[in-house]
C-alpha cells in the first residue's frame, strides 16, 4: 500500500525537482548579476600594468598610439594604446574602434598638454600576447628613433598586461540577466505544467476516493499480484490498469468497453502509438506510449492482457 502511495506521490510531484533546480539557478545568477551591477567601480583597484583576471580602474591623461590594431574583414575593431597615467608612468589600454579617452596628437597637443585633466578608465586586466608586444616595442623604438626598447625590457616600462576597456562588468551582468531569464522561463514552464499535472492527478485520486475505489485499489496493490511494465510506465492489478505516462490514468477493467491501439489523440496524429481505453462513461484514456516504429513486446502483451480482462468483464 505504501509503495502505491509513494508512486502516486512521485507521479504527482513529476518534474518539480528539475523546475525548482532551474529556479534556484535563475535566482543565483540574478543575485550575482545584481551584486556585480551594484559594485562600486570607484572601489576597484588601480591598474598597475601587471595584474590580470579582474576589473581595474586607471586615471589616464592621454593615450599614445595606437601601436596595434585588430581587424575584422579589413575593418579596425579594436586598438591597443600606451596610456600616460596620473602615476606618471605608462600602462597599456585596449579600446574599441573609437575611444572617448584623449589621444595624443588628436585631442592632446604640445600646446594644451599641461591643461589636460585625467579621465578615469575602467576595464579588465588582460595578459598581453608576446606577438602584440613586438608591435609595442617597434612603435616606441620608432618614436625614440633608437633601439631602446626590446622584448626583454618592455615590461619594466609598460607592464605585462593591458586594461581592456571594452570588457565592462555591465556586459557580463546583462549576459547574466539573459541567462537568468532563460532559466527562469524554463522553471516557470516546468512548474506550471507540473501544477496542471498535479491538479489532474489530484482530481483522479479524489474521484477514485469518492467512488470508493481508492481503498479497493490500495488493498489490491498490497497483494503482490501487480504486474509491472516498466518500459511502458504501466502496471496492471487484478482489477485496475494504472498508467503513469503520458499522465496518470487509473481505470477499472470493469469500466472499460473498448480497447485498441491508436496513434491519434483527440483527432491529432501522433508519432507515438498508445493503447486507447474507452469507458462506459464515454471517457477515453491513452496509456502505454511507445514510438510508432519501435518494437516493444510489452505493448502487444499489455494490449492483449487488457483486452482479455475486458472480455472477462474485468475479472
Amino acid at each position: 500500500m505504501e509503495e502505491l502511495e509513494k508512486k502516486l506521490k512521485k507521479a504527482r510531484s513529476g518534474n518539480s525537482k528539475l523546475g525548482i533546480f532551474f529556479l534556484i539557478i535563475a535566482v543565483a545568477i540574478l543575485l550575482i548579476g545584481i551584486l556585480q551591477g551594484n559594485s562600486d567601480k570607484d572601489s576597484w583597484d588601480t591598474f598597475d600594468g601587471m595584474s590580470n583576471n579582474d576589473y581595474y580602474k586607471a586615471e589616464i591623461y592621454y593615450l599614445v598610439g595606437p601601436f596595434a590594431e585588430y581587424t575584422e574583414d579589413g575593418t579596425v575593431v579594436e586598438q591597443l594604446y600606451s596610456a600616460y597615467t596620473t602615476d606618471n608612468n605608462y600602462i597599456l589600454v585596449k579600446t574599441g574602434k573609437t575611444t572617448d579617452l584623449p589621444v595624443f596628437g588628436e585631442d592632446v597637443t604640445e600646446e594644451n598638454i599641461d591643461l589636460i585633466q585625467p579621465v578615469t578608465a575602467y576595464g579588465y586586466g588582460t595578459e598581453l600576447e608576446s606577438e602584440v608586444a613586438e608591435f609595442l616595442v617597434q612603435f616606441w623604438n620608432e618614436v625614440y628613433e633608437e633601439e631602446f626598447f626590446s622584448m626583454s625590457n618592455y615590461i619594466e616600462y609598460f607592464g605585462s598586461c593591458y586594461l581592456n576597456t571594452i570588457d565592462q562588468a555591465e556586459d557580463k551582468v546583462v549576459a547574466g540577466y539573459i541567462f537568468a531569464a532563460i532559466f527562469g522561463l524554463l522553471a516557470l514552464i516546468i512548474l506550471l505544467s507540473n501544477r496542471k499535472n498535479n491538479k489532474n492527478n489530484a482530481d483522479i485520486l479524489k474521484r477514485l476516493d469518492e467512488e470508493g475505489k481508492l481503498e479497493d485499489l490500495k488493498n489490491e496493490y498490497s497483494k503482490e499480484t501487480v504486474q509491472q511494465y516498466k518500459k511502458l510506465n504501466l502496471e496492471i492489478t487484478e482489477n485496475y490498469v494504472i498508467s503513469y505516462s503520458p499522465k496518470l490514468v487509473i481505470v477499472k477493467f470493469a469500466d472499460i468497453i473498448n480497447v485498441y491501439p491508436s496513434n491519434m489523440i483527440d483527432g491529432v496524429y501522433q508519432t507515438y502509438r498508445y493503447i486507447a481505453l474507452e469507458t462506459k462513461n464515454n471517457e477515453k484514456y491513452y496509456v502505454a506510449p511507445k514510438p510508432f516504429d519501435s518494437k516493444n513486446a510489452q505493448f502487444d502483451e499489455v494490449l492483449e492482457k487488457i483486452r482479455s480482462k475486458v472480455k472477462q468483464g474485468g475479472n
Partner: peptide, 8 residues
Amino acid sequence: VMCSNCGV
C-alpha cells in the same frame, strides 16, 4: 489507410 479516430 487512416481512421480519423485511431490513426493507422
